[in-house]
Amino acid sequence: MNKYTERLYNGIIKENPTFVLMLGMCPTLAVTSSAINGLGMGLSTTVVLVLSNLLISAFRKVIPNGVRMPAFIVIVASLVTIVEFMMKAYFQSLSAALGVYIPLIVVNCIILGRAESYASKNPVLPSIFDGIGMGLGFTVGLTCIGLVRELLGAGQIFGVQVLSLNWFTPITIFIMAPGAFLVLAFLVAGMNIIRKKMEEKGKPLAEPAGCLNGDCANCGQAAICADKKEA
């Protein structure tokens, strides 16, 4: 496996941001009320992630270490603004459904986390593939959660009625706010079981990082955290 396919495999399977690393929980909970919203959010995040990895990696030798966080934030925020306008122009209904969560891609831990831990240390091409891998991993995660919630909550898959309403009573709570927490709780529990099995096999999974562990090193706040520890 060469370097590039390794990056893709790493992002989609080995360090999948949703299932394994558990990063970017705010959008994961908020926009997965249907599969199409999950897919849309995942793909817009992917676009931002690939471009931000590209730019940050290209400028990594120019950006002084002391101000790298603000510099990364400006780059990411500009890209997000561009994506927001593109969505408004070409995917109006999706843009309306995702609402404020599109500009909030700026504070998604995955993007600043990848900038900090990968793109700012590696050449351009591997960084792009890292962005594609992580972005697609996130997209797969959101779409899967969206599929489950949409199927249970409305009996639909991508807006197509698959469970006939003649015998299936939709469990509406799954497409509402509490359903997001419930589905994620069962996902975390399931991952705990898989994690234990893999450990017994001697192939431990990567540890969850960021939000759920209360660790901010992966939330793009490594610089701030390090300051705190020294102080």
Binding site: M22, I173, M176, A177, P178, G179, A180, F181, L182, L184, A185, F186, V188, A189, G190, N192, I193, L212
Partner: peptide, 22 residues
């Protein structure tokens, strides 16, 4: 139950709180 210890049970609690706030 073991798999639910830690974050999972917190999320279930959050779900119940969310239902209450609805």
């Amino acid at each position: 139950p073991k798999p639910f210890q830690g974050t999972a049970i917190v999320l279930i609690t959050a779900a119940l709180m969310s239902i209450a706030f609805m």
